[in-house]
Design a protein around this nucleic acid. Structure first.
Ligand SMILES: [Mn+2]
Ligand SMILES: [Mn+2]
Ligand SMILES: [Zn+2]
Ligand SMILES: [Zn+2]
Lengths: 141, 141
DNA sequence: ATTTAAAATTGTAATGATTACAATTTTATT
DNA sequence: AATAAAATTGTAATCATTACAATTTTAAAT
């Protein structure tokens, strides 16, 4: 069993949220698709296995998980939201050529600045955009 | 005349983009509304003065400015895009209570990490969310 | 085992920001 | 004045997300 799966299901139990079939499948999808899937990508992924799955259920489940801080919402794109099972501090790089979103290590947990003294910081996101290594190499051929 | 207005109009001239009435008014709006306005907010702001202004024109103008790197696109929210006339490196804090978006100083220009070596970084954004000082004070009364 | 109420899921319709696009107007050039 | 290119407008289309009522599933109570 995936370690994050265990972690999240424990938290759900603790908050008395049922470990329904749908929720567990959506969670599994997030654990094994680390490419920051959209709702639609999750839907397509699960559709073969669960043809009756509704997109509304995916939205509901993701909202539930996000409210408990068990997943992270990624607004690096303007049109659609992406979801990340990794909640520990890290940065994101979006390639504007191939669309991939890469993780990179960066610890923002203790970032502080005078200008925000007196503010309660609850979420920190670092987003980069550009062209990934592979796409740069493909350009010169 | 606002210094950023001068700067941007010069750049537009340089790129042979006409300094039309609409474009200049939208630009002026961005210079004096530093609250990271949405398309709708710009529209409402200018509607009294220019009742015939079309939202499409606002979208077109903002796209033009963004393509030239003269304004910055802010995707801190999931549903709507915000625009920022300040293109120099700085971070954003969104208050989840009052909705305001604050700037804070942070220089990401020279941020580097091994994981992104070989990547071409073209945009860097640091977004925080939480509760602003004023909203925190209002809570305890 | 039945009954019952709460929770979860589904499907459809509504919302709302953004885009596409054709028609019209404005601007610069000849 | 004629012409072509650029800019603007308004409407319709797109598409992700949300609202919501109907249905199904689950857990607890009898
Ligand atoms: Mn990530
Ligand atoms: Mn700003
Ligand atoms: Zn790429
Ligand atoms: Zn506030």
């Amino acid at each position: 069993m995936h370690p994050r799966y265990a972690l999240v299901t424990n938290q759900l139990k603790k908050h008395q949220i049922r470990l329904s079939d749908r929720r567990l499948k959506i969670l599994e999808c997030l654990c094994y698709n680390l490419e920051h899937p959209t709702v639609d990508q999750i839907y397509v992924n699960l559709h073969k296995e669960i043809p009756t799955l509704s997109k509304t259920t995916i939205y509901n489940t993701l909202h539930t998980l996000a409210e408990l801080g068990l997943i992270r919402i990624i607004n690096i794109e303007d049109n659609k939201t992406r979801y990340d099972i990794i909640t520990e501090s890290h940065g994101h790089f979006k390639c504007q050529t191939c669309g991939s979103i890469f993780n990179f290590e960066v610890d923002l947990k203790f970032f502080a600045t005078d200008e925000l003294s007196g503010f309660k910081i609850m979420e920190r996101n670092l987003y980069f955009k550009g062209i990934c290594q592979e796409c740069l190499l493909n350009k010169n051929d």
